[in-house]
Design a protein around this nucleic acid. Structure first.
Lengths: 225, 225, 225, 225
DNA sequence: GATGAATGAGCCTTCATTCAT
DNA sequence: TATGAATGAAGGCTCATTCAT
């Protein structure tokens, strides 16, 4: 029944203007923790990362993490959803900015690329650690992934219907497009002096050459955005 | 009472014409262990796998593993090299079976594909767990990887020099070719009714269309092997 | 997100004719908390019960509990005293309602029984968790227990002095009487269709048969109370 | 991936003549651990006891305990069964040593008493901690307890059938007999200069007086055993 | 060589307690 | 006075690794 006087690294406490309350504070904490988790998970791997290290990075005590996340796996799931949710949020916007099916397809792939590029750490986590999720969590993640894939697939079908594409193997082209994006996250470091935009544009132009009915990959106006 | 004394141990004792000596026996043991490790690591992940489970699968005691491998990480390195070494062994053979640079390039990619296809488990380990390695080990692995990449790159340069390819971005084509192969291992399950051969052939024909000087992807003689 | 901000707090605010002051309010709070603690401790056990759960049940914040009790152990002591104090309060009253030593003895045992019956939860806590107390606290509790026992013992001596009882082993009879009462609290569930009154009456009539000088256990007037 | 050099209290290693093997060793270890657990659980309570303290007492490392018991609760169950199993083992023997139903009943109660007396610590654990067992474990324990109770109940019925007892409330007498025994373990310290034998003998003679047909509690020959 | 019992550091998680508001 | 977010010590359990036989 004792409670010895404590001691531990007095991690520079974050400036506390005045603790924001409830919803606001909660969301702030959650992202604070999630960011630290993503950083660690992607750098050191899920298993190697300790809750303590995440807490340290997030500038709080271990205990507090558990008021915001059920357990370590919950944190992993959240980290993974970070990317998946971004897909769902941003790709449709990218698509909506165009009217022509082909432009939409291209915009969609670029949208994916941008999301992956901006969240490479989180994306890598999903790639490497998804196999160790509990079955339910895995299923949930997978579902989002499939829904995401559909965004691309639908654009391709639209292109075929509009006779902009030859009636090719939709699945294969979908897959290769996604692979192109993944490739950026996975080993972009092998390609010095390359931006995500250019990488994907080049990749797409190669992929689409034999697919396009009129044979011309549209000249993207890079200033547009 | 968790660990009942096991029994798998009845694995047919090796023929004893002459007690397999040193190098021979050692190598036998090592692959025996390594096979078990690869199986486990790829199925359950590196961290989730216990040395005990590997020992069980390999039909020996935990202790013995430590006579053949320094520690668990050593086992991981070994497992990863399994693929890398296969590259180094088999790709050159595939290349040597052709004389024309274009055929050599194509054979090289197929060679990679075959290695990956036949060792998907080990390949996935490298993919997922390499970040876990100690810096030195990581560097060593990386080196082999780069050397391997060079095999492809050199063929592409040869094609360009022989004016079979337009003078395109060598790096990018190399990367896309490798990505094609990786794609097979990573998510082949998304493509039902697809073989590695066909997958890569299709992929290459798409990739090469805009690159080939005469525009024709050679008709592969599938009987050749 | 484990602990959603609770809501039980809507407990009818106390009438405010005059803001319940100090002693009054304090005592109200204390019993409010203590009741919740007893409920929890007896249902889930001392260690399994969290301060949070007590606070929830009492309709207040954790912090506030610490304004009324030093710590968790203090709460336990308080809970245990709930029964002991009831003994001290109610048994003498029961005794005082009789004049004859024998009737007093019987009334005393019934008094104990009633207290135990009405506070079985608190009684069980004392039974199960007293070994958990710090030495000082334990001593204090023990003292009350002994004082309590004396109430019974003294009646027995009085009966002997009045030659209503044979000069038997006072200690043993005291003990067996208390054991009878404890037995009710401990395992009354084993005896279907039994009330505390009847249980103790029967028990006493058995216990007293060989002790009574005139051999007759008095016919209790059940209407008396 | 580090493994720092260790350090910890070099608890005097137990003399190791030559480690006994398998079944023998296993049983030795189990009782070694179980004894330590009983000691600790009964002294400090289940929750307060740490696995480390048990390991220390048993003269081994924490880890080893887990090769012999699933978890802490498993250890608790085992500790509890220590008494229950002794009942099942020893009471029938005590009964079998007599032929007359009345003597059998008395022998049975004394048998219980002896078991409880010899294993008071373990018995107390069962009394105090059973409520915190998982439902299944609790059910299993309860079952043994009921079976045990039946041993007494059956003797009483036999006495009634043999017209040695008046046709009294079997349940109540059973319960009171058990309570007598429990009383010994629970608060024997209140009765100075008392042995278990005498305590139970006296208690039984009181309990049986109004029950016996011929009114005489048999004079036990205490030398017999 | 081969075994597997034994070790113990370290990690996830809980929860009593504090304290700024 | 009241709140509940924040803290961090401590405990259960796992598993890589060693070493006596």
């Amino acid at each position: 029944m004792k409670r010895p006087t404590s001691s531990r690294k007095a991690s520079a406490s974050p400036p506390r203007g005045r603790p924001k309350r409830s919803a606001e504070l909660i969301e702030a904490r959650r992202s604070q923790i999630c960011a630290a988790a993503i950083e660690r998970f992607s750098r050191d791997g899920y298993h190697t990362t300790t809750m303590q290290s995440i807490a340290d990075d997030a500038g709080m005590s271990v205990g507090l993490i558990y008021s915001y996340f059920r357990d370590k796996e919950d944190l992993l799931i959240y980290a993974m959803n970070d990317v998946l949710d971004a897909y769902v949020r941003e790709v449709p916007i990218a698509i909506a900015s165009k009217t022509n099916p082909l432009d939409q397809f291209i915009a969609a792939v670029h949208g994916f690329g941008r999301v992956v590029d901006e969240r490479r750490p989180a994306w890598l986590i999903g790639y490497r650690e998804s196999h160790m999720l509990s079955p339910e969590a895995r299923r949930e993640i997978l579902q989002k992934d499939v829904a995401t894939t559909k965004l691309i697939e639908d654009r391709i079908r639209a292109c075929i219907k509009a006779e902009l594409f030859h009636p090719i193997d939709t699945q294969m082209l979908t897959y290769q497009s996604l692979l192109l994006v993944h490739g950026w996250a996975l080993a972009a470091w092998r390609l010095p002096r390359m931006t995500c935009r250019r990488y994907i544009d080049r990749g797409l132009s190669i992929l689409l050459k034999p697919v396009l009915v009129d044979g011309n990959y549209p000249q993207i106006d890079w200033n547009e955005q």
